[in-house]
């Protein structure tokens, strides 16, 4: 048997890389995830040309959502210019003809790893978060079947117990990211490893957020204007990172989530984690006509 008999004739990739049946399945799963906020919907995660764990879940959702007129932004830990973000952005443009942007306000679809932009998202924008581990119960219940029963029963006592233990042992809640949060008063989700700073941004947000884990083959979603409440004790308030008084050494902005940069002399300097927001500030200071969007936080305090 010859090689050409064993291989299919050449044909172009489908629009947006994924074939139509894959996209149809993704759309159905996304719709189900939106219908049951916070519920993890299983899906047949496809192979895409990046490794598992590098954003394949988010990439499949983004590929399903894009159309030629879309404007897409990709964030990696707050930055638009990391190798991973650049590669994903370039790939998306090549397979969909969607326009790239770095500006949060301009984007229709924002795929992000571990951050939510500082500028408020609108109703016509979709945030796609890459999720390494979608199961908030994993640390307390490694058996997936049992965990699903616990979700069905809204049996989240063990998550509360984890927080209790942190308070007893450390005097404060040590959960730095992936803070377990109740969605729409029913399902507890992990909001992906976004910092505590970002979790309140999801509460009653105008935009749709889709969280997708490619390796774990699970999608969950937070529809617009949905309650997202971090698990907290009545007498121990939720605390965000103590960044309210930090100033970005590059852009001069204050009161946003910062990256800490240790210095040789033992001190630290800070730069704003949402790199493009910092860049917009710098460009504005240099006299360019840049529009800054409304932000979730103002002077380090959450705006409602």
């Amino acid at each position: 048997m010859k090689l050409d008999q064993l291989t299919k004739p050449w044909e172009a990739f489908s629009y947006g890389f994924l074939d139509q049946s894959a996209k149809r399945e993704m759309r159905r799963r996304i719709l189900k995830a939106i219908a049951i906020p916070g519920y993890q919907v299983p899906y047949a995660s496809r192979e895409v040309p990046i490794a598992r764990g590098w954003g394949t879940g988010g990439l499949q959702v983004t590929l399903t959502l894009l159309k030629p007129s879309s404007v897409v932004k990709v964030i990696d830990q707050g930055a638009d210019d990391s190798v991973n973000a650049s590669s994903i952005r370039k790939f998306l443009r090549r397979v969909s003809s969607a326009r790239e942007t770095l500006d949060t306000m301009e984007a229709d679809v924002i795929q992000s790893r571990h951050r939510i932009p500082e500028e408020k998202l609108r109703e016509d924008q979709i945030l796609v978060l890459q999720v390494p581990n979608p199961e908030p119960l994993r640390p307390v219940q490694p058996d997936m079947s049992e965990a699903r029963i616990m979700h069905g029963d809204a049996d989240y006592g063990q998550l509360w117990l984890t927080l209790y233990e942190q308070l007893v042992r450390s005097g404060r809640i040590m959960q730095g990211s992936s803070y377990p949060s109740m969605v729409n008063g029913r399902h507890v989700m992990t909001p992906s490893p976004i910092p505590r700073w970002d979790v309140p941004k999801m509460h009653m947000a105008a935009n749709l957020t889709i969280l997708s884990a490619g390796r774990e083959k699970r999608i969950h979603a937070v529809p617009p204007y949905t309650r997202v409440e971090p698990l907290v004790f009545d007498d121990v308030p939720y605390r965000i990172e103590d960044h309210a008084d930090k100033t970005c050494y590059r852009s001069g902005v204050t009161g946003f989530f910062m990256n800490e940069l240790p210095q040789d002399d033992g001190s630290s300097s800070f730069e704003v984690s949402d790199s493009q927001y910092g860049v917009k500030h710098i460009r504005r200071q240099e006299g360019e006509p840049v529009t800054l969007g409304e932000t979730y936080y103002r002077e380090g305090r959450l705006e409602r």
Partner: peptide, 26 residues
């Protein structure tokens, strides 16, 4: 018992299941 949680946490778990959400009360 959950051997790796605190003893008080083991007791608190039962109260948490009953809906108690005040750390001081727990």
């Amino acid at each position: 018992l959950r051997m790796n949680n605190t003893s008080s946490g083991n007791v608190a778990e039962r109260l948490l299941m009953a809906g108690e959400r005040s750390f001081a009360v727990l």
